[in-house]
Amino acid sequence: MPTVLITGGHSGIGLDCSKDLAARGFDLVLAGRSPARMQIVAQELRSAHNVDVLLVELDTSSLASVRTAADECQSLLQRGEIGSLVAVICNAGGRFDGDVRYSEDGYELTFATNCLGHFLLVQLTVPLLAARGRVVFTASGTHDPDTMDGRMVGAAMKPDAFALANDGKDGSRPLSAGKRYSTSKLCDVMYAYELARRLERAGSSVSAISFDPGSIPSTGFLRDMPKAMQWLANTRLFGWVSRRMGVVTSTSKFSGTSLAQIATEDQYPTGSYLQANAGTLTKVRSSTVSYDEQIAVTLWNDSKDLVGLIPDEEPAELR
């Protein structure tokens, strides 16, 4: 059976995406940091839908973990334990409030988790994708400073990979948690666009798409915020006020189902930016800077340097 690899597929919109995929007969590879939690989800999906669900331990903030996970996926495919890989969904991520933190590789944790880990994972798994396969990045409307989503979280900064990876070092004042998050999501959108351009130039049938799931307070996005804020964000009043202010809102179920559709259905063209908003999935324009191809190429090349990509790891179609 066709197989989908998804990071963070055991919680939040990732879990709803996994449920939808399994219900439609797709086998899954769940990749995440919590094998015990993933095992519970895997058992439920196997029992409910009679699909194969395999687990790969993966921490996207760790480049070593990404390389190990990608190797394991390749081995699973070579041994025939999974069918053709039809999609890679780069869904895991987080916002890290409080003092700036760094990954085991020495990179700012938000950028390492939301960007560099998935960038490397894509480089290592694109060769595993079947014809007409898909790569989907879960982004966020917060990447666009001209929207209410972007203004509320903190306007995204210029996507300078080296500056973002080293944010707050050498005594410099770090970006706010909101700006670190929104900028990381801008980078994800630009990764998707640049990936789509490179694949098209190479004549590949693989697609690359970015997806804004909308504001979903019930997910882990607010887990580092004060308890009072977490409670308020889950009230009907907060949702009503958010919509009146122009914030893009959705539910975990709708956005998860939308993510599953984007990853497996042909009507969504490569290079698209899709948004779930109040029960509707539509193709919309992303931020102005996200279409700057020169900035995207620099971001891509700098990210290659930061993850230590060697020639043998880089797919020919992405060079």
Rank of each mutant, 00 (worst) to 15 (best):
S255R: 02
A196M: 00
G168D: 12
A31P: 01
L195I: 02
V100M: 08
V307W: 00
S210K: 00
M152F: 14
R67N: 12
W231Y: 13
R95Y: 06
V29K: 04
L175A: 10
A69I: 06
N301D: 15
N234L: 13
R24S: 05
C73S: 05
K179R: 15
I13H: 03
L5W: 05
Q261D: 12
V41I: 14
T235F: 13
D170P: 04
M190S: 09
K304I: 00
A64K: 13
L299N: 05
L124F: 05
P159S: 14
G171R: 11
D312C: 01
I295A: 11
I89C: 08
I262Y: 02
C73N: 09
S65A: 07
G308S: 06
P269N: 00
A296R: 13
T288H: 06
L21Y: 03
R79A: 12
Q230K: 14
D99T: 10
L15W: 04
L76M: 15
Y268I: 01
H10C: 09
R151N: 07
A36L: 08
V136M: 05
A130D: 10
G106K: 08
L274T: 01
R198H: 03
G117P: 11
M148Y: 02
R223G: 12
L306Y: 04
M38H: 06
G12R: 07
Y102S: 11
S18I: 11
E108G: 09
T270M: 08
S18D: 05
V88S: 08
S176Q: 12
T183P: 05
A131G: 04
S205G: 00
T125N: 06
A139Q: 03
V189P: 02
S182A: 15
V248R: 05
D52E: 09
A296Y: 08
S62T: 12
G98P: 15
A48F: 03
L120Q: 01
L120N: 03
G12H: 03
G256K: 01
R134K: 07
T68S: 15
T235E: 06
L63D: 12
I6E: 06
G117F: 09
L129H: 10
E81N: 14
S204L: 07
V206W: 02
K304M: 13
G178C: 12
R319T: 14
P311W: 04
G168E: 10
L299A: 10
L85I: 10
K283R: 14
S218A: 13
A208M: 02
C17W: 08
P127V: 11
D52N: 11
A296N: 09
G271T: 07
S252W: 04
S272I: 01
Q267R: 09
E44G: 05
S47M: 00
S258C: 15
G14P: 03
G203M: 11
D149K: 02
R180N: 07
D292C: 02
E265R: 00
A42E: 10
I40H: 08
